[in-house]
Simulated scan of single mutants.
Amino acid sequence: MLAILGRTGPEGKGLALRLALAGEAVTIGSRSTERGAAAAAELAEGAPGANIAGTDNAGAAAAGDVVFLAFPYEGQRPVLEELSASLDGKIVVSVIAPMVFERGKGARAVEVEAGSAAQEAQEILPNAQVVAAFQNVSAEELQDPQVDMEGDVVVCSDHADAKKLVIGLAGKIKSLRGVDDWGALANAKYVEQITPLLVNINRIYRTHSGVKITGV
């Protein structure tokens, strides 16, 4: 069972939809059971027959074997500290890319004391296996199952088996490919900081740019 926390954001909704269409059972969490259930019902309309359920964040974290963090960075510490017991021993996938928007300057990365949002998550959840992935994938394209996505998902983790599992999940989304960075979770910083760059490119060129690794 996959759980996705942060259903109000487009990235979380898009991942839930695409992974459910790929045959995965998905539970999406929100701040309340009602909001989670409403989000699941909305997604199910565009994915007949898909296994999508909705509840609150605590219920989703408890139900999921693999739990995705798809909420804004500023909410990470309070959410993870509250749910830490439910996440012990689980694979936790950080989709978070800390950034801020400045008027006239666009998006820029936020420096994280731990190095990256994913590293901070691992510090808060020492008994979980944290994997960083999907930060550079277009949320808008994820939400449209008619779009044939193109690009690579760079996956970073200190846990080899967890990394392999997430690479496999990325490959279930048509035309996406999971790429092993052959490094530790410390490399997540560089992946996260690409996201504001892509956001600015997308605004300038009115497109949905992504990352493609050549020669692999």
Results as ranks from 00 to 15, higher is better:
Ser138Ile: 07
Glu140Val: 10
Ala133Gly: 09
Val137Ser: 09
Gln129Pro: 02
Gln146Asn: 15
Val137Tyr: 05
Pro145Arg: 11
Ala139Ile: 00
Ser157Phe: 01
Cys156Arg: 10
His159Met: 02
Val155His: 06
Val153Glu: 00
Glu141His: 12
Ala133Thr: 06
Val153Arg: 00
Val137His: 09
Gln129Tyr: 08
Gln129His: 14
Asp148Glu: 15
Met149Leu: 15
His159Asn: 06
Glu141Thr: 10
Cys156Phe: 15
Ala133His: 03
Ala128Lys: 02
Val130Thr: 05
Ser138Trp: 06
Val137Ile: 13
Met149Glu: 04
Val153Lys: 00
Glu150Trp: 08
Asp161Thr: 12
Glu150Tyr: 14
Val155Trp: 10
Gln146Trp: 12
Val155Ile: 11
Asp144Ala: 09
Val137Gly: 07
Cys156Pro: 13
Asp158His: 04
Asn136Cys: 11
Glu140Trp: 01
Asn127Asp: 14
Asp144Ile: 11
Gln143Met: 14
Glu150Val: 13
Asp161Val: 05
Glu150Lys: 13
Gly151Pro: 09
Val153Asp: 01
Gln146His: 15
Ala139Ser: 14
Asp144Arg: 07
Ala139Val: 01
Glu150Pro: 00
Asn127Met: 12
Ser157Ala: 06
Glu140Thr: 10
Glu140Lys: 12
Gln135Glu: 06
Asn127Glu: 15
Ala128Leu: 07
Val137Leu: 08
Val153Leu: 03
Gln135Arg: 11
Cys156Ala: 15
Ala160His: 09
Asn127Thr: 14
Glu141Leu: 10
Leu142Ala: 02
Asp161Ile: 01
Glu141Phe: 10
Gln143Ser: 03
Asp152Val: 05
Val154Gly: 04
Asn127Ile: 01
His159Tyr: 05
Asp148Phe: 11
Ser138His: 06
Phe134Lys: 00
Gln129Asp: 07
Ala160Ile: 07
Asp144Gly: 09
Gln129Ala: 08
Asp152Gly: 09
Ala139Asn: 02
Val154Cys: 07
His159Gln: 06
Gln143Val: 04
Asp161Arg: 07
Phe134Asn: 02
Asp148Thr: 12
Gln135Cys: 10
Pro145Tyr: 13
Ala132Lys: 05
Ala132Leu: 06
Ala139Tyr: 04
Asp161Cys: 01
